[in-house]
Nucleic acid binder design. Structure first.
Length: 419
DNA sequence: TCTGGGGTCCTAGGACCC
DNA sequence: TCTGGGGTCCTAGGACCC
């Protein structure tokens, strides 16, 4: 059996840990640049604030109902996520972290007599030790566990085992086809056109038709609904095959020099992520675009291949700036920039190029490692490339005016407690 | 005025080869 | 009028996820 542990309104719940006064109050968390709503507490959902809605569209509802608003605080959420995962691992040896707020557990080896009782204990323990509420869904496959979790979220006890039901088909019949994991807007439209409207309909759909219209991906979902495991299980996630750092800019940029600072800054962040997973990239792609929400949006991207795979900031930044030079068109008001690293390989697999200066590259390696160490220990960039500009001149940095303190990862942001 | 960010996998189609 | 067949590799784009 597979269980899915899913944190309830994760980001909002993280904010509540340190703000107990917000218990039972509406809370929302905004995306980067305070653009969209990306997390809502149950109370905020009840006010009709939908997922992904631009903040400015709900400002009135927010003010009227005294909704607590937070800019996103990823340092905090990541830390809470790690604590929750650690707790889960104490309960079950086979755990696959799926996203920042979800983990799959294989329960088979635990030989449980009562899976629901196990889920209940786990749920209570996470709430007590980490401070966040979770829901647990149980089923024979990941897809069924996902469905069970959706039902668990509605249930008071926050637990649901679809495999323990007398008539699971009856449950599937109550689940709309677009609510199934892996069936998005596009596919559900196709399915509805041929009267496949519920998870039950999909379970008994004809294999040939599904393969033809939804590809093997859709067919796997159908098999999972039938109880056959088609999606693998990974306890240790693979290294990323691509690494992307992209941002909406806090302000419009037309000036090439300012734009190049932003590109250099984000390219440098991307190379840091690359080094963190001990990898090298062969291709650097730079993206720039004007606002998506005005007519004649310009979107330019250029790929630059490196002579040999690299992960040091100077090389990555240099390539990203070369991409920018090729993608840049004068006179446009740019609102987004991004740097994508691809064709990623492990440091171990590096083949030295014919003209590669090994001594020089080793020196650079040590330098990068030291810089990363300093920045990691300080938990903020203390050392960075001049090409990224000085912090005080980075007017393009995204705004996060309502960010809560990073309680668990910055000593100087711990609240003062008067005794 | 203000509209997120970071991933994965699959397919179709073109280029190229023998 | 009829214009091979089968394979690989690469890329762009679509669809999906949280």
């Amino acid at each position: 059996m597979i269980a899915l542990v899913d944190c309830d309104s994760f980001y909002a719940s993280c904010e509540r840990i340190f703000r107990p006064d917000l218990k039972d109050k509406p809370v929302i968390v905004l995306s980067n640049n305070d653009g969209c709503v990306i997390a809502r507490s149950r109370e905020a959902k009840a006010l009709g604030i939908s997922m992904g809605v631009p903040y400015f569209k709900v400002r009135e509802v927010v003010t009227k109902n005294n909704v607590a608003v937070f800019s996103s605080n990823y340092a905090l959420y990541q830390d809470i996520s790690s604590r929750a995962l650690e707790t889960i691992r104490n309960f079950c040896p086979e755990v696959e972290p799926y996203s920042i707020d979800e983990s799959f557990l294989i329960l088979d080896s635990l030989r449980l007599r009562d899976e629901a009782a196990f889920a209940k204990r786990l749920r209570q323990f996470i709430k007590r030790s980490v401070g966040i509420p979770v829901s647990v869904g149980i089923g024979q496959t990941k897809t069924l566990a996902k469905i069970a979790t959706k039902i668990a979220k509605q249930a008071d006890e926050g637990i649901y085992n679809i495999a323990a039901q007398e008539d699971p088909d009856c449950i599937l019949a109550s689940m709309a086809v677009e609510d199934i994991w892996g069936i998005g807007q596009h596919q559900s439209k196709k399915l509805r056109a041929v009267r496949i409207r519920t998870a039950r309909d999909l379970k008994y759909a004809e294999d040939g038709w599904i393969k033809k219209h939804l590809s093997v991906v859709g067919l796997r979902t159908v098999y999972e609904l039938r109880g056959f495991r088609c999606f693998g299980f990974k306890e240790i996630p693979d290294n990323r095959k691509s690494i992307c750092v992209s941002r909406s800019l806090g302000t419009y940029l037309t000036n090439y020099n300012e734009l190049s600072q932003a590109v250099a800054f984000y390219a440098s962040l991307a190379s840091e992520k690359l080094r963190a997973q001990r990898s090298l990239a062969n291709v650097v792609t730079t993206y720039i675009s004007t606002s998506f929400h005005v007519p004649d949006c310009y979107w330019g991207s250029k790929r630059v291949c490196l002579a040999t795979p690299k992960n040091d900031s100077p090389s990555i930044v240099r390539a990203a700036l070369e991409g920018l030079r090729l993608a840049y068109i004068e006179g446009k008001k740019y609102k987004r920039v991004g740097v994508l690293l691809s064709e990623i390989s492990s440091c171990k697999e590096l083949q030295k190029g014919l003209f590669c200066d090994i001594k020089q590259s080793k020196k650079l390696d040590i330098l990068m490692r030291e810089i990363d160490k300093i920045n990691l220990e300080a938990n903020k960039p203390l050392v960075w490339l001049a090409a990224g500009g000085k912090p005080e001149s980075q007017k393009w940095v995204t705004s996060a005016s309502m960010r809560s303190p990073r309680y668990t990862s910055y000593w100087d942001e711990l609240p003062t407690i008067k005794v």
